[in-house]
């Protein structure tokens, strides 16, 4: 599997779909990220790594324009999201899907309604077509039969998966996943990796994923960046397999070899 991945990485385009330039993220006076620069290529699986609390979720939220950047620029599909108007942003966002770390399912709606919502609002598809789409999306994440459950009636891992089903409802061109496999058992987690690879290969979806699962990183990632809390930015970038073997930064090798820093 690893070999296959390398092959794919070889033929990857280097046409950037997301460009992050000098991104600085602040909450009040507390600077979380400073002058972060990277690009995500069209059709790749791009993984963001880093210790707990180093600002991965913060980076994702800044990339999709949920928080205002303290400074810098984020361009998605050629549109600068820091200066785009509501209309452009709306259009852009409909082409993206986001799984929140907290799943963020709509608590007052059933799973079916959660997944159907974007389809009903943003497409003119008749219910006859929406219905099977919703069912297959729930099936993709192993939640067939749970259409009428409310989010409060699900386990944490099931909520995560439902969040994924909602994020992929519109077959977006860019997907942002914040810790998709947190709270999942190894089997489900492996199935999720497969789903990610299939979506990526099949529809060519670009994926930006935050994850800590070493195995999953080696299974799916084309490229990674690693953030660090003390540097407030990127300490490593590239192919995870090469970084594991050849990185000179002990913090990077410790991460890949699951070693404590002290």
């Amino acid at each position: 599997m690893i070999e296959m991945n390398k092959l794919e990485a070889g033929v990857l385009s280097t046409d950037p779909i997301i460009v992050v330039e000098n991104l600085t993220a602040r909450f009040g006076d507390d600077t979380i990220l400073e002058n972060v620069n990277f690009e995500v290529y069209r059709g790749e699986i791009f993984i963001i790594l880093g210790g707990s609390g180093c600002g991965k979720s913060t980076l994702l939220k800044h990339m999709i324009g949920l928080h205002e950047l303290a400074s810098g620029r984020v361009t998605i599909n050629g549109i600068d999201i820091t200066s785009a108007d509501d209309n452009e942003m709306g259009k852009l966002r409909r082409g993206m899907g986001m799984l929140f770390q907290s799943s963020a399912l709509f608590g007052s709606m059933t799973l079916y309604e959660n997944v159907a919502l974007p389809l009903m609002e943003f497409t003119r598809l008749p219910l006859k077509i929406i219905d099977p789409i919703v069912k297959t999306k729930l099936g993709m994440v192993g939640l067939s039969g749970y259409e009428n459950h409310l989010p409060s009636e699900l386990s944490g891992g099931m909520k995560k998966r439902a969040g994924i089903a909602r994020a992929i409802a519109l077959d977006p061109t860019v997907l942002f996943f914040d810790e998709p496999s947190a709270g999942l058992d190894p089997v489900t987690s492996a199935e999720l990796d497969m789903l990610i690879r299939n979506l990526n290969k099949g529809i060519g979806t670009t994926m930006v994923i935050v994850t800590h699962e070493l195995e999953s990183i080696f299974n799916v990632a084309h490229r990674i960046i690693m953030l660090d809390k003390s540097k407030k930015g990127i300490i490593a970038e590239g192919d995870p397999r090469e970084l594991k073997e050849h990185s000179e930064n002990p913090r990077v090798t410790n991460f890949f070899n699951r070693k404590a820093t002290h």
């Binding site: 949920l66 259009k91 409909r94 986001m98 929140f100 907290s102 963020a104 399912l105 709509f106 608590g107």
Partner: peptide, 11 residues
Amino acid sequence: NEEVDALITMG
């Protein structure tokens, strides 16, 4: 619950 954020990201 970040549901409002989710709404925004969905457009």
